[in-house]
């Protein structure tokens, strides 16, 4: 299975990179843009056939290492095709 994981700063936590990019976009004339958030994207292959087991493992990986629950939140997609 292929997993696609997105890690972003929690809402309410200042994202200085997002702010900076938002200002750059405004300079380019994209003044309708707001709330830019920068995150991380991870892909991984998981040698697991049962979706439930895969999800449990992914959650544990995110909680232990891939995201810091104090400042970050995560979401993932599991693609059973592969």
């Amino acid at each position: 299975m292929k997993a696609k994981i997105h890690v972003t700063l929690k809402q309410g936590i200042l994202d200085p990179q997002g702010k900076s990019i938002e200002q750059a976009l405004a300079t380019l004339g994209y003044t309708a843009v707001s709330n830019v958030r920068v995150g991380k994207y991870l892909e991984l292959d998981l040698n697991e056939t049962e979706k439930e087991k895969a999800e449990a493992q992914l959650k544990a990986m995110c909680d232990k290492l891939l995201a810091n629950p104090i400042i970050e939140e995560y979401r993932y997609e599991l693609d059973a095709e592969r």
Partner: peptide, 10 residues
């Protein structure tokens, strides 16, 4: 307790 974020100035 807590965590570190990128410096405000980047």
């Amino acid at each position: 307790p807590g965590a570190m974020l990128r410096n405000r100035s980047l």
